[in-house]
Computed example of a mutant assay.
Amino acid sequence: MSDIQGLSPEELNLAAAICINIAFLARKFYSSNTLDVVNAFSEFYDGHPNATEQDILAFSGARLTDLKILESIVGGSDGIKESVDWVTTISSSLPRTAGTGSHLIPVFWVFFILTTAVLALRLWSRQSIAGGIRTYDWIMVVGYLLTVAHGSTALYHATGINTISQFWGYTWDQIALQQSIYMSLDVLYPCAALAIKSSLLLFYYSLSPARYLKISVWVTFVFALATALAASGYSLFKCSPVAYWTEWYTSVCSTNQTIPYVVTGAAMILADIIIWVMPLPMVMSLQLYRRERVAAVFTFSLGIL
């Protein structure tokens, strides 16, 4: 270990891991900050230098199976005590950095107002000029509501829960809530994106009787649907049990979660590009002046956003 004044990133990660594991173990302290739980363990060991497993269980409310697992990780009961004592020693030097979620507040409100205004104008123009609101317009409303739900949840997580940047400043209940919100965001995003894609695709389907366009719409929709189901399903079932934070030691999660997210993310971007390109051949074939054609291509290209 380095001196207290110069903790390395590895030591900070180790301190966070100790706080998380001790906090999960001590079920009686789920509403206390993880660092406070570590300090409570340290005081317990000071008063009970020869504490048995039963003493630890009675003090912390831990389950015997969880205690056995943690002991096997850190090298027995002495390993737990040494870990607790080390974190207690360096606790005054552990950084406590405020979260940066407040930066998202103006971004959220700007885009919320902008998208709400655009959607309202679209519905108004459909109703008053285009002869009524169509099915694809209502699907876009669903996409809008899902997007607002996703953005609101993310903002709540960033400003209401993720208030600091280190695990030792949270309770286990807060950590578990963070994880559940992460999961809900991962599931909501593909659903919102699918609703928006479906609205655009149905709009394209109604534009022209061209066989190539209708086939392209169906193929793209199936591809987008499969991608959304894969992304949401993986986020939901990447760990067993689903609420893995309730079984921190015995839950089983995918070992490499980066690859599935990269693959599904790339597939979603590919679907975006296809939807952007799909109507362009039809637009280019229309008998329009050059300025009108450019304007039409620009209008359809807005879908890439």
Rank of each mutant, 00 (worst) to 15 (best):
C239R: 00
A228W: 03
N256G: 01
A231V: 06
V219K: 04
G233I: 02
S232I: 03
L236W: 15
S240Y: 13
T220A: 15
T246W: 08
N256Y: 12
W218I: 10
V252C: 01
E247G: 05
G233M: 06
A224G: 03
N256F: 07
I259H: 02
S235N: 13
V222E: 06
E247R: 14
V219A: 10
K238E: 11
V242Y: 09
P241T: 00
L229M: 14
F223A: 11
L229H: 11
S235C: 07
K238N: 11
T220M: 06
F237L: 10
F221W: 13
A224W: 04
C239S: 11
S240L: 11
N256M: 11
L236K: 07
A230N: 05
F223I: 12
Y249L: 14
V219E: 04
A243F: 14
T255Y: 09
F237Y: 09
N256D: 15
A230L: 09
C239E: 00
F223Y: 12
W248L: 12
V217L: 10
T258W: 15
F221A: 07
W248A: 03
L236Y: 15
A226V: 13
T246A: 12
A230V: 07
W245H: 05
K238C: 08
V222W: 13
A224M: 03
T227K: 01
Y234G: 00
S232L: 05
V252H: 07
I259G: 03
F237C: 07
W245N: 03
Y234F: 15
S254T: 10
S254A: 15
S235G: 04
W248D: 00
C253T: 00
C239L: 06
F237Q: 03
Y234D: 00
W248K: 01
L229D: 08
V242K: 09
S251N: 08
V242P: 02
A224L: 07
A226H: 11
A228Y: 05
C253F: 00
P241A: 00
V252S: 12
V242L: 14
A231S: 15
F237I: 04
T250N: 03
A230R: 04
S254Y: 11
A243W: 14
A226R: 06
C239F: 00
S240A: 13
C239D: 00
F237S: 04
V219Y: 06
L229W: 14
S235D: 13
T250S: 12
L225G: 05
T258M: 15
E247V: 06
V217H: 08
S235Q: 12
A243I: 08
T227D: 10
A231E: 13
A243E: 14
W245G: 00
S235H: 04
W248P: 00
K238A: 05
P260I: 06
L236G: 04
T220N: 05
P260H: 05
F223S: 03
A243Y: 15
T220R: 06
A226C: 13
P260A: 03
V219P: 06
Y234E: 02
G233Y: 11
S251T: 00
T227P: 05
F237M: 09
S232M: 07
T227I: 08
P260E: 09
Q257L: 07
T250M: 04
F223V: 06
S240G: 08
Y244L: 02
C239V: 00
W218S: 10
V242C: 12
